[in-house]
């Protein structure tokens, strides 16, 4: 390192690219070479200035459209269109619904709003199932309050389906902002003895949309989704397929029964 220092070497030093030994040698050299020291100081100031100019962008909150989970959920939906319709058909049969209903659902579907809802439901699921102490806002012990509060906020009667038959107990629920298109969302969480969790994500119905039934898989997370004239509902979990379908069916049947009971007279028929 006694040879004259090259500009490349000084630059590599300023960029922190040298090994500790080489760095030490450059530091010793700089003590006796003012020109080189000034050069290094200049390079370092350029770095600082570049950081001052551009680094703050990384501290900004990441906008929704750049959320990786959401993008992945949307993509997995698009990639699985054929699989999805096959699965939807199977579930519809399981639900005891006819092909006519299925066909209508196909014609009426509005993909963008549903994509967004499913992606939001999966996203919310992944965030809150990971929480231990703050998984829900209102706990199961206050179930009556939870139901009336969420029904009021969504301006549509919703319930907390009973999944004890499937081995799942109510943990509680929370209110979420949802998407601008669909408005507020309620997330209801269940847990089984093995501490596996499923969530049910409900919003008021999307205007002008008929009945739709879809499902999507994103990595380990499966989302079962349907809409009707009253609500949209997404059941989200990481359980095996068959178990997800059983739970989805139970949630669907109970929420549908609830709506039948609450159906205003003018909507009959």
């Amino acid at each position: 390192m006694s040879a004259p220092m090259t500009r490349e070497m000084l630059m590599a030093f300023a960029d922190g690219q040298l090994s500790p030994a080489d760095s030490a040698a450059v530091r010793i050299y700089l003590e006796t070479h003012a020109d080189a020291a000034a050069e290094v100081a200049l390079l370092q100031r350029q770095r600082d200035a570049i950081a001052t100019l551009y680094a703050p962008a990384a501290a900004e909150p990441v906008p929704a459209r750049l959320r990786v989970q959401r993008l992945a959920a949307e993509q997995s939906r698009h990639h699985n269109v054929r699989v999805r319709w096959a699965a939807a058909a199977i579930i519809l049969v399981g639900l005891g619904l006819g092909a006519g209903w299925f066909g209508r659902a196909y014609l009426d579907r509005s993909p963008s709003a549903n994509d967004q809802l499913m992606a939001s439901a999966v996203y919310a699921h992944n965030i809150f199932v990971a929480e231990k102490r703050h998984a829900v806002e209102v706990v199961a012990a206050e179930q009556d309050h939870l139901v009336s509060w969420l029904s009021n906020r969504l301006a549509t009667p919703i319930g907390t389906p009973d999944l004890t038959g499937e081995g799942f107990f109510l943990v509680g629920g929370r209110l979420l902002p949802g998407d601008p298109k669909t408005g507020r969302a309620a997330q209801i969480m269940y847990e089984n003895a093995a501490a596996e969790r499923v969530t049910v994500y409900i919003t008021a119905a999307v205007r002008g949309q008929g009945d739709v039934y879809e499902n999507a898989r994103f990595d380990q997370t499966e989302a079962l989704f349907w809409t009707n004239p009253f609500i949209t509902c997404t059941v989200v979990g990481t359980l095996p397929d068959a178990q997800m379908k059983t739970i989805g069916r139970a949630v669907y049947q109970q929420l549908t029964a609830l709506e039948e009971a609450n159906k205003p007279p003018e909507r009959q028929g």
Partner: peptide
């Protein structure tokens, strides 16, 4: 984790 840096 890389998203903030990519944006920057």
């Amino acid at each position: 984790q890389a998203v903030p840096a990519l944006r920057r």
